[in-house]
Design a protein around this nucleic acid. Structure first.
Lengths: 345, 345
DNA sequence: CTGAAAGCGCTTACAG
DNA sequence: CTGAAAGCGCTTACAG
């Protein structure tokens, strides 16, 4: 059990009777190497149990072989977020193909976040993906100042200048919201409330705007909106507030599953039947939502595909292309049992 | 916006009129540098906007400055797992202090997992933390063969040889389970069931063994055990199975919150009142559990502290110490509203 | 198809 | 307290 892996490309070269350059070429395939010497090299490497040092390669190629991802949300919230781990797994899928890795950072303050991006830019990552983007997000300027390649993940098609010219992968959250409103309205609901996500997030704002637009287009009152923060606790509180209204809504559209599930639980504990007395919908398609009783109508956001697309787009940018704004169209409403006609008055 | 960061330590040295070595020393403090030249160096660096290249430093020091973490669970399951993101945030806390990062990999097959460890060992990480450990986990031998420093996270004190001599951070899951059984038994329950996690995981097995031991010690029947897989879907199915019994249990102890929440939802949809007709408990303290109605009695596992401790321990191992087995004693039962006396027969 | 050599940008003995 | 130089282990023009 003595320290292994001290064998270098030089040892392999010597063992195979070739130069270090040839060993390198045999693996990279960047120039032809005769079949015979290639075999000699491979068996020498196998015999010596050699693997190229990632650190040396990184310095020589000026590539770290990793992308950065920084999560700036409270870990408690992240914990129950259906999006992240699926997104991560999508990223990993394409990173693995390219022999790359993912540097993950969790921060809780703005200063810490700033620092992390500086460290990433200093050679710990070749580029980053920007999540939970805000209006005029300060990170847009930061990554550009740092010369750190980045792609931003957004919830709608960026208007000009909105993402400061950075490559963007966007899904449009609006159609799904419109569809949910339609589902509720067509079941006969007229008093429909929305428990929104924070409006400073683009995805929070977009969902709320889509809700209002859809309601108004049907001539319905769109004023029943409470802003939550994606946590179960805010979902529960918002639901309590709505149920306490003199004219409580008969349907509530939540901006994510966690808030919806907490709301569902609260409603039932008050003797409000779901969906007979109250219809509900979530957003994000968490595993729980499908296995609740009743199962929660929600929206699958194609988080895995967005992860894949985000990485693909970042790699394209690293290769010198300008990917522009690319659409991820995997958002789908999943109608389940939590929406039914409203009770007779 | 031309490519920045092409400024090197040599530029700074020249600008400050010193050697590259002195610049290096001024920052690392590994040898004294006169206050005056230090200032010259710092202002030169500031003026040129220089930051040391992480890649070059990594090669020179034979340290990557990152630890590896590989998640081998289904992303759908991870998504709703209360443990990971808190654990990650704990890791980050101490990594940040040491100017280090975290390489995260998500894999779904055993081969992929094997490959990931080889890549990590090739210089992408200085060490790894082993999660979701199994009996005779093949990774123990793998990391040792690869010469990859590792610490394992376990759910009980390792018996000799169990973790192959690797440094181990363990929390003992047994006392919390014993306490939950006591809570239920003292409320008057005798037919208590357990919906377990997979027995091939150490934490799954330990919780189940603790359940059986606690039940037997009280002279209660410990045979009502169903093995789930930590998903909401398995929690729902197991609960259905239990409620369909001719003599259904009056209390169910679940091995994690997700299964418990799905079980709670199913029970109520069948008209079974919680906690009046059925008492329930979870494990992991997910954010949702506290904001459900009724709030779920569960177990806080100190995931953040365990993350911190795991990294601290790994850093100690990297520094050449032998940390042995260290106890993380932050497991606490959180009594809430989901346990009450059983209904009168 | 292959070799010898320079270079990537730091750190760290070795001298002074 | 400081400098000059070697070294970390690869890759990649440059020659042949």
């Amino acid at each position: 059990m003595s320290a292994p892996s001290k064998v270098t490309i030089g040892d392999v070269a010597r063992h195979a009777g070739v130069s270090k350059g040839t060993v390198s070429l045999a693996y990279s395939g960047k120039r032809p190497v005769s079949e015979e010497t290639r075999q000699r090299i491979f068996s020498a490497a196998a015999e010596l149990n050699w693997t190229a040092s990632h650190r040396a390669r990184a310095l020589a190629t000026a590539r770290t072989g990793a992308i950065g991802l920084v999560m700036a949300r409270d870990p408690e919230v992240l914990a129950t977020d259906a999006f992240f781990s699926k997104f991560l797994s999508g990223c990993e899928r394409v990173l693995a193909e390219h022999d790359m890795g993912l540097m993950l950072h969790a921060v809780t303050t703005a200063e810490a976040e700033h620092l992390v991006y500086e460290r990433l830019a200093a050679g710990r990552a070749d580029g980053v993906i920007l999540l939970d983007v805000e209006i005029d997000d300060p990170r847009f300027a930061l990554v550009q100042r740092l010369g750190l390649p980045a792609v931003v993940l957004s919830a709608h098609e960026p208007t000009r200048g909105e993402t400061a010219g950075l490559p963007t992968v966007f899904s449009d959250d609006s159609p799904a919201i419109t569809e949910l409103v339609a589902l509720m309205a067509e079941a006969g609901h007229t008093r429909i409330a929305h428990v929104a996500g924070p409006a400073h997030y683009i995805h929070g704002r977009i969902r709320q705007e889509a809700f209002s637009a859809a309601m108004r287009k049907r001539g319905l009152d769109d004023s029943l909106v409470i802003e939550g923060d994606f946590t179960a606790s805010s979902g529960r509180d918002a639901t309590a507030q709505l149920l306490d209204l003199p004219q409580p809504p008969t349907a509530i559209l939540f901006a994510n599953d966690m808030m919806a599930i907490a709301g569902l639980s609260l409603a039932r504990s008050r003797g409000v039947r779901v969906p007979e007395d109250l219809s509900l919908s979530g957003y994000d398609d968490s595993e729980l939502s499908a296995h609740l009783s009743p199962a929660l109508t929600t929206v699958s956001t194609g988080a895995v595909q967005r992860g894949q697309l985000a990485v693909t787009t970042l790699l394209a940018a690293l290769a010198g292309e300008d990917p522009g704004a690319v659409l991820a169209d995997h958002t789908t409403v999943l109608p389940r049992d939590s929406i039914a006609p409203p009770p007779r008055p």
